[in-house]
């Protein structure tokens, strides 16, 4: 460890100080209910590669075995979260009815194809629930946008296709007929501006939700975040692609 306090009693007290500190006006700590500790890719998984790339005379063991899965030093609140075992500090707030409609909309935005699943199959609607339930001003404002937009979709479905019709029950071409009019703000009719902003918001959140999953990253053929023994120039086919061969 890089530092030491002047006696061990103090160290213990530092580690136990979370109760005291939680009296601070900490934003975001509205609920301490902990979701399951998410999977952590421990550095240990990378160790064999790392060992092989280090000069043999300088490979201190301590460097290579820091496979912590949680951090006892962290208080666990929003200012000092456990970065090694992340948890969401707030409850979800959308209703199951809203989530069903949202899942359908997410898949209208990113459908399944031969390379990857659809947005809802990768939990995009659940991420949007996490997003709009967060206790921050911007997220709370997004919640209003999403809720009003979902209501608008159903009312538009009724208006166009008859009573007791919900957006999520429409045929694919009927959904497209609605979405085509709100998918691009500069082209949206003035009375559809709010609906277009809603669509844009859900598209942005769906795209973050989808492409940040392991499956989404694989779809994009992102191949980083792995330890390398050395850093090489770009491959020849890359240089060729940009005309720098």
């Amino acid at each position: 460890m890089a530092t030491r306090s002047r006696n061990s009693d103090r160290d213990r007290r530092l580690d136990n100080s979370s109760k005291h500190r939680s009296e601070l006006p900490v934003m975001g700590a509205v609920s301490m209910d902990r979701r399951q500790a998410l999977k952590v890719i421990a550095i240990a998984a990378a160790t064999p590669t790392l060992v092989s790339c280090k000069p043999s005379e300088e490979a201190p063991e301590a460097l290579l075995t820091s496979a912590s899965t949680s951090n006892p030093k962290a208080r666990g609140d929003a200012w000092d979260p456990d970065l090694l075992a992340p948890t969401v500090l707030w409850e979800r707030s959308l209703t199951s009815d809203e989530l069903q409609s949202l899942a359908v909309l997410c898949d209208v935005i990113i459908p399944a194809d031969d390379r990857s699943q659809s947005a809802s199959q990768l939990g995009a609607h659940d991420f949007i629930d996490e997003w709009v339930s967060a206790p921050y001003e911007a997220n709370q404002s997004d919640k209003i946008v999403v809720r009003e937009g979902l209501v608008w979709l159903d009312s538009e479905a009724v208006r166009r296709f008859g009573e007791a019709t919900r957006f999520r029950d429409l045929a694919p071409d009927q959904r497209i007929a609605i979405c085509d009019e709100i998918c691009y703000l500069p082209n949206a009719r003035p009375e559809l501006e709010a609906a277009a902003l809603f669509f844009d918001k859900v598209r942005d959140l769906t795209s973050t939700a989808f492409w940040t999953t392991p499956e989404g990253m694989e779809d994009l053929q992102y191949v980083g975040n792995v330890p390398l023994p050395r850093w090489d120039p770009p491959p020849l086919e890359v240089l060729r692609h940009i005309g720098l061969e």
Partner: peptide, 17 residues
Amino acid sequence: DPVSETPMFQLPFDAPL
């Protein structure tokens, strides 16, 4: 202590928001 506290390799997918 960066040695024991740094989230090396963790994905955005694993984090809130």
